[in-house]
């Protein structure tokens, strides 16, 4: 009985681990050491563990963002730009309001970041609802364009003249989320996924709106003919998705980097998609999926630093993981549509 409960992505995950181990055994001169850093080494000290947990928190938020959009039949490929927007909105808020006390200040920064990400995705949602503009394209293009603009802002008008890095001025100490595992960036934001994941699970599965949202995702023509307001279900899920990305962006700023440094998204938006795919596009799968992904990326980072694994080999391993993860999803897709329907 229990066997049926094994999620479809489990064999793929094991395959990923096996592939990573195989690459290391084949190409590393000190495979034992490399493997140690890749797998158990992640928990070896507070820094590595804290960094891994921090990215687990962020990835579960961006993963949730993608899952919400997936469930409504929307594709949000603009996560990267929305995270970046969230971070820069929080930077702007901190510049405009430098005199707030700590906690309200942090909350306001996070609110502004969330609103920024939401606004960016809302535009794509409205384009889809009004003119049937493909959300997959519009989220991606919009986010790439905005990312360039933010790069310019950080390098130009907002840049910190005292720093040699391409970054905005650092946040004042009071606007920083304090670390719970010094010196890692792991902070109080770990509570957010613990609230958001059950909340959205409930919303999707136990509310009328959630049901209608999923119905739109399964078959938009059925939903339309059932009399649902399609405008809402084409904009709302994307907007929520953008808001969650923006939230992640503001958390990266207030909890990890403390300054709007160029490149701070570090693939958070894209990796959110990977997490959503591993999770089988279901909310309950997000936390384990994010844990897997955060562990693997942290493992490869540490192995890169401390063993003879080269930057390229690290990238190869991550590439293999992505390939395996996305191909498994392809298989699921074909299972769902044996007739070979139109590409989404």
């Amino acid at each position: 009985m229990k066997k049926k409960r094994i999620p479809a992505s489990l064999p793929v995950l094991l395959l990923c681990l096996g592939a990573a181990a195989l690459v290391i055994i084949l190409f590393s001169k000190t495979p034992a050491q490399t493997l140690y850093y890749f797998f158990p080494g992640v928990a070896a000290n507070r820094l590595y563990l804290g960094e891994m947990l921090n990215s687990l928190v962020l990835l579960s938020i961006t993963g949730l963002a993608i899952v919400i959009a997936f469930n409504a039949g929307s594709f949000n490929l603009g996560g990267e730009g929305q995270v970046y927007t969230g971070a820069i909105c929080a930077v702007l808020a901190a510049r405009q309001l430098p005199d707030l006390p700590g906690i309200p200040g942090i909350l306001l920064l996070i609110l502004c970041g969330t609103a920024g990400g939401a606004l960016l995705a809302f535009v794509s949602g409205v384009l889809k609802a009004l003119w049937d503009v493909d959300d997959l394209i519009s989220t991606f293009l919009l986010s790439s364009g905005v990312a360039k603009l933010i790069d310019y802002l950080i390098a130009g008008p907002l840049s910190d003249p005292a720093s040699y890095l391409i970054t905005t001025e650092p946040l004042p100490d009071k606007y920083r989320l304090p670390s719970l595992l010094i010196p890692s960036p792991f902070n109080i934001s770990f509570i957010l996924p613990l609230i958001l994941l059950p909340l959205f699970h409930y919303y999707l599965n136990h509310t009328r709106q959630g049901y209608e949202l999923q119905m739109t995702g399964s078959s938009s023509s059925f939903a339309r003919h059932s009399g649902l307001n399609m405008g809402i279900y084409q904009t709302l899920p994307l907007t929520i998705s953008g808001a969650l990305h923006g939230l992640a962006g503001s958390l990266v700023l207030t909890g990890t980097y403390f300054a709007g440094i160029q490149g701070l998204t570090s693939g958070l938006g894209w990796n959110g998609i990977a997490v959503a795919l591993i999770a089988g596009r279901k909310v309950p799968g997000i936390l384990p999926a994010a844990l897997f992904f955060a562990w693997m990326t942290q493992g490869s980072r540490i192995a890169l630093l401390h063993s003879d694994l080269t930057l390229e080999l690290g990238a190869v391993i991550q590439g293999i993981l992505f390939l395996l993860i996305s191909s498994s999803v392809l298989r699921l897709k074909f299972k769902n549509r044996p007739a070979g329907g139109s590409p989404s």
Partner: peptide, 28 residues
């Protein structure tokens, strides 16, 4: 796949142990 992977993982965990003893300084 599972059986291949379990074999691999066993290999992995076996070969891991010397790695640990090599770097005692990095532990607690």
């Amino acid at each position: 796949l599972l059986s291949i992977l379990i074999t691999l993982l066993l290999l992995t965990s076996l070969s891991c142990s010397p790695g640990k003893s090599e770097s005692p300084g990095s532990q607690g």
